[in-house]
Write a protein that binds this DNA or RNA. Structure first.
Length: 453
RNA sequence: GCGGAGGUAGCUCAGCUGGUAGAGCGUCGGGUUGUGGUCCCGAAUGUCGCGGGUUCGAACCCCGUCCUUCGCCCCA
């Protein structure tokens, strides 16, 4: 019986090039989040199972989580999402936090699911939440943050669409305008959530099946179908235009427009599943027809913190999975060619140079460069190939001649150019390159986009 | 839970209607002593996913099983 070299089903190994890519993606997330004043948090990967039951879905716990009993007889679950944990953390310090609280996190999560494209069992998920702001300003900030993250990867506005709606508004439309009871409303929400996946006739038939005979006679189905054709808030029934939820969404759309988020659109069919959202909801879609599914989203959920027995705290947030994000960046060719964290690979020229080169290596490292040395004594060709293969930007040649003169050849492996300098100059060249960073091939200045410059 | 596709050298795969394996890339070495990504020469490497069956003989046929992958269901 030989041991398998495969990682566990649905989980990934991160070799240096994979980890480098993850660091790039997470780096942007951290950079943009912090630019908006969000602070990073983290928490245990294990939580008491009850925490994930608060949403009331026993089925999910039974079938789609890693749940086990610890040695103390407690039922624990590997986190499947971060929101309950973040809510718990806010509730724990409900009184003492300085609001508005702006937090973000990038936890690894586990879900026991059948794997498929874009969906693994272990994945990372970025979350950003703002707590303590009832006003529409928080909704605006969260959507702008999501948008700016996309911009930071070099995404163009025609590559993604930000769809917005309001759960509260939809609830009111379905109950007050269509006259459905709560059970019918919930069923219909689930159905509308899948509308883009269903043939239209099938949708109509299933919607009709929800209605009572008297509702059918009253023409509720036609009212619903007309409602779903609405693409602008102004097209909603006139007596609904002044509803607070509608006014608020209108306000949000206007604010986004003046923030130049030109790809934000109203989408009445957007439901965002069947969960804890209480008002604004949004989802970001890839416009590429090959990958026309929701990439990520979020919304306002004012009720979660209150589940911990403290006064509720208004909250807006969103979450973004690493796998879908990576798929998006790959398909739009937005990933830069990433180089090694090692600035230079020291190629030793001549025999017995390893010891003699040590002072130079120490000096370069002391001055802040990341330096790897080839200690194999192989011919130069092999040493250089190793550096190239490891994605290191520069090769630095160290031989008797260089040690004697204090002048070293620095070879730019990507460009194939070579210059000779003293150590100080070499350090500054390498640091300049490091600062310039790795830039996506397709990222150019976006006049209407990146607020961060 | 359901359905499609597939598992052959490190990787991508070929292998016609059964006669115990190949290519490209990669790896390693060399093309004489201080330079890669193009060139030339040479070398190593596989229990053909696993178990069983049919057969004189199976990578190829049959059964089972495990795994990978795509989709459905679900999706916090």
């Amino acid at each position: 019986m030989t041991l398998s070299t495969q990682p566990y089903k649905g989980a990934r190994d991160f070799y240096p090039e994979d980890k480098r890519l993850q660091k790039y993606m997470f780096g942007k997330l951290r950079e943009v989040s912090e630019r908006f004043g969000y602070q990073e948090i983290d928490a245990p990967i294990l939580e008491p199972t009850e925490l994930f039951l608060s949403k009331g879905n026993q089925e999910i716990i039974d079938e789609q989580t890693y749940t086990f009993t610890d040695r103390g007889g407690r039922s624990v679950t590997i986190r499947t999402e971060m929101t309950p944990t973040v809510s718990r953390m806010v509730a724990a310090r409900r009184q003492e936090l300085a609001y508005p609280v702006r937090w973000y996190d990038i936890p690894n999560l586990w879900r026991y699911e059948r794997t498929q494209r874009g969906r693994l069992r272990e994945f990372w998920q970025y979350n950003a939440d703002i707590f303590g702001v009832e006003g529409v300003e928080a909704d605006h900030e969260i959507v702008v943050l999501a948008d700016q993250i996309m911009q930071s990867y070099g995404a163009k506005r025609d590559m993604y669409t930000i769809c917005l709606s309001s759960r509260k508004m939809v609830d009111e439309l379905f109950t007050q305008y269509l006259g459905l009871d709560n059970t019918q409303k919930d069923t219909l929400i689930r159905l509308v959530d899948r509308i883009k996946k269903l043939p239209y006739e099938s949708f109509v038939a299933q919607a009709d099946a929800i209605l009572t005979p008297s509702q059918r006679d009253a023409g509720v189905l036609d009212k619903l179908l007309a409602l779903l054709k609405v693409t602008k808030l102004q097209q909603l029934p006139a007596d609904f235009a002044s509803q607070p939820a509608v006014v608020r969404l209108q306000q949000l759309m206007a604010m986004l427009e003046s923030s130049r988020v030109a790809n934000a659109v109203f989408d009445i069919s957007l439901m965002r599943g069947f969960d804890y959202y209480t008002d604004m909801v949004f989802e970001v879609f890839d416009t590429d027809p090959e990958n026309n599914r929701a990439m990520f989203g979020g919304g306002r959920y004012d009720g979660l913190v209150g589940l911990f027995g403290v006064e509720p705290v208004p909250t807006v947030g969103f979450a973004m999975g690493d796998v879908t994000l990576q798929n998006f960046l790959e398909s739009h060719e937005l990933l830069p060619k990433l180089h090694s964290e090692t600035d230079a690979y020291v190629v030793l020229v001549g025999d017995d140079m390893y010891e003699k080169a040590q002072p130079v290596l120490s000096e370069l490292r002391r001055m802040g460069l990341n330096i790897a040395v080839d200690s194999t004594g192989r011919k130069l060709e092999k040493q250089i190939k190793t550096a190239v293969k490891q994605g290191i930007h520069y090769a630095l040649f160290v031989g008797e001649t260089e040690l004697a003169s204090g002048q070293f050849k620095l070879r730019n492996l990507a460009a194939g150019t070579e210059e000779t300098h003293g150590l100080e100059r070499i350090v500054s060249i390498a640091k300049d390159r490091r600062r310039a960073g790795d830039v996506p091939a397709r990222a150019e200045d976006d006049e209407d986009g990146d607020l961060l410059g």
